[in-house]
Design a binder for these strands. Structure first.
Lengths: 218, 218
DNA sequence: TAGATTGTTAATCGATTAACAATC
DNA sequence: TAGATTGTTAATCGATTAACAATC
């Protein structure tokens, strides 16, 4: 089976990108259970995808399986880790040390995967100077100066909505290439800056929509 | 323009459901700014959608605009609120009082929208008995008994992954119709139970994928 | 070898968009 | 009225799936 790129043009469909971490997570579970081999049919069954979709997704990146056998769990895990960029570390800076920000700073799984929060900033003078998890909380006025001398891969925004665009602009201005946004705002960024949103309220509203779907016909 | 259902069969495409909360959020911003009217072209411009998509999405639920005028911001906001099920309250129960669980319990925006956490459960004996935000933390062994006598709309799972399926099963067994899952696990539920996942790590991995997209060709 | 399962192609399905008659 | 913009239809685009030759 020839291992060629199926697409030369670059863009991987966003559905594929959404599913890769799901595959990674389940394969890690299998590995923990000592399972050594898995077929696309088994993966699909466990994750509610079709086998064809899983094979099609993987084929964007190469040929990782064997006819008649399936996939070696360890090997596929290694490949997907590499594809997701997990063979390097990421430097992150967090702005907003409220409850959510603190929870993010304390979450060990990120660090374990190579994502490290190196600095925390907040406006609140009562918080500034306190240590939390990794580091001392600094005043947000010093964010720009900090970023100038400390190259950062990912800027995390866990502030109230009314300041998040401003923080975002600072990240962009200082060359931070990607933003992880927890504030309930649609951030405006240049095309080349990557943004991932975690909109808690949006997720909750999707749930309430579906809870009411039957009743809510116009 | 006749206000008919465009689809009789029921299922609203998930893309539409994803976008409705985004529309709600932006319309709220416009209302706060005192803007009284908006066209699909303006909405699309601000949110990076096409005008056609916005009109198409809304048309699943009725006709809320006027030719030559656009949409009345207040009225459209009212309609989308209703469609999302925001004209009632929701009772929630939280399991897992770690950093993330505490952050969720403290988040005022949920309550403001009518989503109320009525009880918190945890395994940790050191936490049990403490008050947090709304309520005292109860031992998780009492979850089932609690749910039997306290009808609950949404079960929130903010536990470590290895117990989340078990908690989920308890919710399902006790008739909780929907689950808001923050644990890094693909939960198995019957078809009729609704699940919304917030997978923080998956989101972070999508970001690292895209940060590395150029380099990572197989 | 026979059975199983891949990677890929072609067919299908669904979602997005462009265009426009309707009409405020 | 003339200009603007809706809601909807038809055309396009892209993603998913079924089928199968290749082959372990």
């Amino acid at each position: 089976m020839p291992s060629r790129e199926r697409k030369k043009d670059g863009g991987i469909p966003s559905g594929v990108v959404t599913r890769l971490p799901i595959y990674l997570r389940y394969l890690t579970e299998l590995q923990d259970q000592g399972v050594g081999r898995v077929s696309s049919a088994q993966l699909g069954e466990a994750l509610s995808f079709t086998a064809a979709q899983i094979r099609s997704d993987l084929s964007y990146f190469g040929s990782f399986g064997q006819q008649g056998y399936g996939y070696d769990v360890d090997e596929l895990l290694r490949q997907i880790s590499r594809i997701l960029g997990l063979n390097r570390n990421y430097v992150m800076v967090l702005v907003g040390a409220g409850n959510l920000g603190k929870a993010l700073a304390s979450y060990e799984n990120f660090r374990r995967r190579g994502f490290e929060i190196r600095a925390i900033f907040d406006v609140d003078e009562l918080l500034v100077g306190n240590y939390h998890a990794c580091c001392v909380i600094q005043p947000v006025e010093q964010l720009e100066e900090y970023l100038r001398s400390n190259p950062t891969d990912i800027g995390i925004i866990a502030t109230p909505g009314h300041v998040s665009q401003e923080i975002c602009d600072t990240f962009v201005k200082c060359g931070v290439p990607s933003i992880w946004n927890f504030s309930p705002v649609h951030l405006q960024v240049p095309d080349e800056v990557l943004v991932e949103h975690i909109h808690l309220t949006d997720s909750l509203l999707r749930l309430s929509f579906r809870l009411n779907e039957q009743r809510q016909k116009a």
